[in-house]
Design a binder for these strands. Sequence first.
DNA 1: TTGACAACACCGTCCAGCCGGTACAGTAAA
DNA 2: TTTACTGTACCGGCTGGACGGTGTTGTCAA
Lengths: 177, 177
Amino acid sequence: MRARRSNSREKILAAAADVARESGPGSLSLDAVASRAGVSKGGLLYNFPTKAKLMQGLVENFLNEFELALEARIAEASHESSLAAYIQLSADDCEKPKPSASWMFSAIAEDPDFLTPIKAFKRQLFKRLKGETDDLGSLLVCFLAIEGLRSMNLFDSDVLSQKEHRLLISSLLEIAG
Amino acid sequence: MRARRSNSREKILAAAADVARESGPGSLSLDAVASRAGVSKGGLLYNFPTKAKLMQGLVENFLNEFELALEARIAEASHESSLAAYIQLSADDCEKPKPSASWMFSAIAEDPDFLTPIKAFKRQLFKRLKGETDDLGSLLVCFLAIEGLRSMNLFDSDVLSQKEHRLLISSLLEIAG
DNA sequence: TTGACAACACCGTCCAGCCGGTACAGTAAA
DNA sequence: TTTACTGTACCGGCTGGACGGTGTTGTCAA
C-alpha cells in the first residue's frame, strides 16, 4: 500500500487506542474516536468507511509495528538467538504498566475473526523459532511464558513485582540458552 | 450466596456462556441470553436485576468452580506439590478445544473492573505457591507459562499441536520439580 | 398467600452508517 | 490569466435500529 497517505489515519488509530485504554474497550465508539482524534465523524468515516475497517487498521498497525520492532531487535543483537531477542523485546513491552492494547477487546467484541491475523502471525513466529533450536521443550516453555507475560499486561494484572519480573526474564534467558 | 435457590440461575449462567462462545462476546445481550436459557426477559431480570449483576455472577461462578477443581486436585494427589496440581489442572482445562470463557470479553467490554476478583484470585494463588517453594525462578516460569496456555485457550489460538502441548506440560512438571 | 417466574408493551439512550454540504488543490482548455 | 471542471479530504446533522431497563398483569405451584 502507499504510506504517503494523510496523517489523519495515524491520528485516528492512535486516538482509538487511547480511547479504549482510558475509557474502556466498551466505550470505543466512532464519535469518541473522532472527537479524540480532532476529526469529525465524517472525516473518520472517510478514512475508515466502517467500524470493522477501523478495527482491521488497528490490528494491521499493531502487527506492523511489532514486526518492525522484532526485526530491529534481532538485527542489532545478531550474536544472540531470535528467541532471546523476542524475550527481551516482550520484557520491555510489558515492563511499563501500559495496557496499550485494550482496543483488542473492542475488536474481539466486534468480531472474534479480527484475531485471525494475530494468530497467524504467532504461528509463523513460533515456526521460525522452532527452526532455530533443537530443544523444543525449552522453546515451548519460553514461548508460553512470554505469552503469559503479554496476557497479564493486556489484562492489566499486577501480580508480579518488578523484582519478580526481572527474575522471570533472566530465568527465561537462561532456559533459552 | 444461597445455592438452594432456583436452578434458573445456573441455566442462565450457562446460557450466557454459550451465547458468548457461539455468537461472539459482542452479541451477549439480555434478550439473547433469556431466549437461549428458555426464560423470559422478565425472568432473567428477576434473577439478575441488571446486566452488571449477570456479569458478576459469571465471574463468581467461574472462580468458585475453578477453586473447587483446584482444591480437589490438590487433595487427591497430596504427594505432589500444589504447583504440579495447578499445572495439570490447567493442562486438562486447556487440552479440550473449548474457548469456554468468551464471556470474559463481554465482561471486560462492559466494565474492566469485573476482572478485579479474578486478578485478586490470581495474586492469592501465586502467593500461596510462593510459600511452598524456595525456587522462585522456576515458579515464575511455570506460573507464567500456564498463564500463557490459558491465554491461548481463551483466544482460541491453535498454535500448539497436541504433541507440543504434552511436551510443554512435561517440561513444566520437570521444572516444577 | 407468596415467591418465582411468564408475557409483553414501552421508554430513553446510544451508536453505526448515510448524506448533503464545503474547502481546496490540481489541471486544462480558452 | 482566467474560468470551469474534477477529485480529495473533511464537516456535521440525521435516522433507524438495537439494547438495557421498567412497569404491569397474569399464572401456578408450594
